[in-house]
Every structure is written in structure tokens, then in C-alpha cells.
Design a protein around this nucleic acid. Structure first.
Lengths: 366, 366
DNA sequence: CTGTTAGCGCATTCAA
DNA sequence: TTGAATGCGCTAACAG
């Protein structure tokens, strides 16, 4: 083949080929400054001819803008984050920005490392679903900001950080879901996916603290659950809260435990996908039928939830919209930086939807 | 706060702070060349003190290496690609490379644009699940290679392109799955997720051509289905192949159609997740029970498949491993570039697994 | 072992 | 309108 395998042509090569000065070529290729139509044509033709492609690295060097956004999430393979990243990716690509995606496996040290990578690569902004629980553990984020990199949080807020955040109202969503269960007549409602505490705390406070101290969304959802109980004056029972490893297997174990209780739950609120599948396994093992024997509501809808028998009532999160909104806010911040002063920071709360299907029924009369 | 909000410190700043020459500072910070232990300490301390972070862009400018890989997939929100990207990401991060992820929405024009973005940003290598069907439509890939960017294909091969490819054997996997159905006694087996052809072709060739011309994996899976039929001398019936839009809704429509046939299928082979959920919807509408009335095997296992009643027999793809292997091959190629000549290109085929659960049974006797 | 010098490819004054 | 000169921050010979 005739294709050049050597060094890629630069602006100088184009200039030579077109018979003009470097900067004239640079101006037409970079799309700035004045160039006469004729010369313009000539340069463009020359560029085309020798296969010129602008070197974005060099451009970033001199402009200080990389047109790259950094995205930090726990796990890109998690469908929730997959949706968020897709939303970010589509929205930013439409505005000429690309995304460097890093997974932290829910580990703060990895998050710090990821942030440094993004700082080093001079991204223009960062969107992060942070594992940090407070400002004290989020100095890496402050670091990035100090260097003029805009940061917006997604999915999880970090109390004490004055940053834009794009979220859903986890607490309200959980509260509504549990309220729905209570309205159906349930008073013994299991909470599946709890704080990864060792042993079994009895005090409500310990549970909440444990959840909050592990992951922001978990804490919110647990509080929403408690809110709903409080609203109806239902007494809280620590035995109905899952505790320990957050895995499908352990959810199965914990639900099995709850089912053995003298006064077992008649409904389950699952705050994660794996919590739901783990619960379903436990119910099957116990020979219990969904709806008839025990009601179910889960977080994060999926196409499977609708085809299972009976179809599951689920809370749907607008994953794509979360990502798109985060990108939008970030990009607006990047634009605004050049102009006005810092605009006020805010929480952007997107709506969730409780999709009612058929996994909620009255509790069985014993 | 005291944090500098001004311009980030450079190597010169560190040199000044440490009282040494630029290059001495550069050598210790860049980790190359000789530096005396004492000076080294001094420079490191100075860097720490003023909060120096190396500018990866500038480094890439002079070294010609960006330590960034480009990843092009159809849709990062698709769980399959989510797994692949996670595999790539983890494997490359472990070797100091980050990933720029671009989604093409299965559109070749977007893939070309994405490739150009990656060329411009000077990535060191590209991993792509290409929508290109042959070498003729993959000139953008050749373009990248011509510029010295290593490319490896993942999930989909491109006939005629001499490139490393990390794949599963779609044809064999499909053939095994369908053979399993035949072994159970089925002879009328529906193929769900076919070529997006208009109208209903009767000739086997048209179907295969249609599939192949749309997506590499689709063609392979269809051929595997045909292989299995041929092996057992079962006559092919075009009515048992889904045709048209590749959506859950349309799969439901097509399966409903098959069910209305004078001689309806007693088993279904679903080549995608949405094909499976669409099929399940159609079966429910028709009041058919899985296994007892109709057997099912699907592609891409998920935790839901195991909790559905009855549990579904599925083909599992090693998504993480596909990504990890692709990154490995790519990185090896990048390393090798400096040393030996081009090593021979190859197909790396990873194993799939047929997870037998309970959705396959004998066909019902009528 | 250390400092000087010269690019990498582009954007950006500033004269012409 | 165009072109020559300078700098972005770093690496990489090279001489000291």
C-alpha cells in the first residue's frame, strides 16, 4: 500500500505543500483568524492530499484546553453506571468533548489515584460518583478544583463539599416505595442491602450510622425506609435489616434468616439489583410465592423485572438523564469559567418513578 | 484556603524551589537519567512542597507516547460492552494506561468519527468492536494503523483485515446450544434476533446474507443455528427465523407470529438479552409455560436468568476476560513495536459456557 | 552526575 | 491578509 507509515504530517508539511507560511496554514486548519478564500482552499486541499490530522495534544498544550472530561465511577460494568456514563458520553460528545473513564471499585484510594491521573492529563472537568463520605476524605476533589478543574458530583453527594451534584432523591424514593408496601397492609417489612457491619446491631442509630458511613446512597435509602415506618407509627425492628457483605449470596442468606424469624417479614424492600435477585433465591428456597406470600419492591428497573412471574414493582432511576445532566452542568461550568464569576452551586434532583407491576399484594392472613 | 488557584507549578518552578537546574529536576521527576540521592531528595521535597504534578500532555508531546488507549464500542450502557470495557480498563490501568471510551450506537459513520478523535488525541492503541463488515468499509481502521496506532478487534472480526482479534466462537456456541435443544427432541426451533430485513425471505441464503451483512456476530450465530440443524438433517424453515427491527418489542411480535404458525416452534434460541425478554413476553401473552410447553436457551447470562421460574439455560460470555485479553494483546503489540518486527496477527478465541438450568425439556407431545 | 540547548506541533502576538 | 517569532511543559541529546 502507498499509505505513509512514517511520521504523521504536521502543519508545517501542509504549509510547504500549499506554498504558504506556517501560521497561514495553522489559521485555516485551526479555524481562527483571517485567511483569504483562495489561500484557504489551497491549504485545505494540501491538507487533504497529504492526509493531515491535527494533533490535539499539541493544540491542548498551547490552548490549555483538552476537550476531555474525566469520569470516575465505582464500576463501569454495573448497569447503573453504564447508563450514567452513556448519558455523559453522548451529551459531551455532542459538544466536542471526549471522556476518560476510570473505575475505582468503590475504593477511595483508587479514586484519589484516578483523580490524579485526570489532573495530570489535564482534563477540563471531572464527573465523579465519589466514595468519599465527607469533605475531610475528599481532599483530592478539592485538589482538582484548586487547579481550576471543574468538578460535579453524580449519584452521590459529599456532605460539606460545595459542589454541583446531580442526584435522585434516594430517601424520598425509598420512603415512597415502603409507604406503598405499608398501604397494602404490610407492617413487617425487610430492608435488603444494609450496612456492612459485623455482628447485629440492635439500635436504630447504629444501623443508620453504619449505612451512612459506608455509602451515601445506602444511608439515604435506609433513612427513607425509616421515614416511612415512622410516618405510620410502625415500630422499627433491627432484625428486619440486612447487615454484612453486599453481595447477592449474602442477601440470600440474610433474607433466609429473616424468613426464619418468629414474626417474619411479609414484604421486602430491595435497594439494589443483586439484593433483589438474592432475595428471590431465598424466597424460592423457602417455597414462598411472590405477592401471594410475600410482597416485593426493588430499586433499578430492568427489562427482566417485567418478564418475571409475577412482574416486579420497581423504582426506576433515570440513568441516562443523570449522566446527561451532569455533563450539561459541568460543561456550563467550564463555559462560565471564562465569563462570569462562579455561579452558585446546587443540587440537581432528577425524578425517579415507581413502576407498579404485580409483586405487591396484601399480606397473607395467617 | 491557602491553596493556589493560579497556574499549576511546572518543572521549572520545582527546579527553582530546589535550587537545581531544570533538567535535574526533570530527571528526578520523570524518573530517568542519573541524579544523586541527595539532590533527588531535595527535588522531591520541593515538588511536594509546591504541589507539583507532571503535565502528561507535555510529556506526551515530547515522547510521542500518551499512555492512553482508545476504546470504541456500540453502546457502553449495554451490559456486554460494560463488562468488556471494565476488563480493558482494569487490565490497562494496571499497566499505566487509561482509556478513552467512545460509543458509536452501532453506526459506522460515528465509528469513523470516533477513530479520528482517537487519532487526533494520539492514543497509543485502539480496541474496537467494529460495525465494519469488510475491509472495504474499514479504511478508518487502516488509517489508524498507517499512523502507527496498534489496533485490536474485540467481539467482532472484520473479514479481510489483518488484525489481532479477541473473540468468542459465536458459531460454535450457537451450534452447541441448538444441538442441546435438538438432543432434547426438538425439531421446530425458533431463532430469535434475526437479520433486519424487510419482508420475509424464504431462501436460507437470503437470511444468512442479511444477517452477515448487518452484524458479524449475528451472522455467525445464525450459521451456528443452521449448522446444528444440518447436523441432524432437520429441514430449515424460514418462518422460524425472526426478521426485522432488533428490539425487545419486535422480538415479542415475531415470536407471537411463530406461535401462530400451523406447526409452531417447540423451542426458541434467543441470541440476545432483549430477544429473550421479548420472547418471554410473547410466551406469557400466549399462556405458554417455559420448559413444559416450550424450551428456551439464551445468549449472555445474567443474574436474573437464574432466579426466573424456571431458571433459564444460558450461554455465558466471558466479558471481562474478553476485555482483559484484548488489552493484553494490544499492550503487547505496543511494547513489541519498539523491539521486534510485527508479530503475526491472530484470532484469540475465548471459551463460552452453556449454563444448563431448567428451561430445556422434551417437546410436549401433542 | 549536572546544566545547557534544542525541539515536539500548535496557537498567538506583532510586523509587514 | 500573511508570515516570522515566541512559548506551552516536558524529554532528550550533549557538553561540562
Amino acid at each position: 500500500m502507498t499509505t505513509e507509515r512514517s511520521v504523521p504530517p504536521t502543519i508545517s508539511d501542509v504549509a510547504a505543500e500549499a506554498g504558504v507560511g506556517r501560521s497561514t496554514a495553522a489559521r485555516t486548519l485551526g479555524g481562527y483568524g483571517y485567511v483569504s478564500p483562495e489561500v484557504r482552499e489551497r491549504v485545505l486541499a494540501a491538507a487533504e492530499r497529504i492526509g493531515y490530522r491535527t494533533n490535539a495534544l499539541a493544540r491542548s498544550m498551547s490552548t490549555g484546553v483538552s476537550h476531555t472530561l474525566g469520569v470516575i465511577v465505582a464500576d463501569i460494568a454495573n448497569p447503573f453506571f453504564g447508563g450514567v456514563v452513556r448519558g455523559i458520553s453522548d451529551a459531551s460528545r455532542a459538544r466536542g468533548f471526549d471522556t476518560l473513564v476510570l473505575s475505582t471499585h468503590e475504593d477511595l484510594a483508587e479514586e484519589v489515584a484516578a483523580t490524579n491521573v485526570l489532573i495530570d492529563k489535564r482534563v477540563d472537568g471531572i464527573i465523579v460518583a465519589s466514595a468519599a463520605l465527607d469533605a475531610a476524605s475528599a481532599s483530592h476533589i478539592e485538589q482538582a478544583r484548586a487547579r481550576g478543574i471543574k468538578v460535579v458530583l453524580v449519584d452521590r453527594a459529599v456532605p460539606g463539599l460545595d459542589l454541583d451534584a446531580v442526584l435522585i432523591d434516594n430517601r424520598a424514593a425509598a420512603r415512597d416505595a415502603v409507604a406503598r408496601l405499608i398501604a397494602a397492609g404490610h407492617r413487617r417489612i425487610g430492608f435488603v442491602w444494609g450496612p456492612p457491619i459485623e455482628g447485629r446491631p440492635r439500635r436504630r442509630r447504629d444501623l443508620v450510622d453504619g449505612a451512612v458511613r459506608n455509602l451515601w446512597t445506602d444511608g439515604e435509602r435506609l433513612q427513607g425506609y425509616l421515614d416511612a415506618l415512622d410516618d405510620e407509627g410502625i415500630v422499627f425492628d433491627a432484625d428486619l435489616v440486612m447487615v454484612g457483605a453486599k453481595t447477592e449470596e449474602h442477601a440470600q442468606v440474610e433474607v433466609a434468616r429473616m424468613l426464619e424469624l418468629p414474626d417474619p417479614p411479609t414484604a421486602l424492600f430491595c435497594t439494589e439489583n443483586d439484593a433483589m435477585t438474592g432475595s428471590l433465591r431465598a424466597l424460592r428456597d423457602a417455597g414462598l410465592r411472590v405477592a401471594e406470600d410475600i410482597s416485593l419492591i426493588g430499586f433499578d428497573d430492568s427489562s427482566w423485572a417485567a418478564v418475571i412471574e409475577p412482574p416486579l414493582t420497581m423504582i426506576e432511576q433515570p440513568t441516562l438523564a443523570l449522566g446527561a445532566k451532569a455533563a450539561e452542568v459541568l460543561l456550563a461550568g467550564i463555559d462560565g469559567e471564562e465569563k462570569g464569576p462562579d455561579t452558585a452551586t446546587a443540587f440537581h434532583t432528577l425524578e425517579t418513578r415507581l413502576i407498579e407491576r404485580a409483586s405487591v399484594a396484601e399480606p397473607p392472613r395467617r
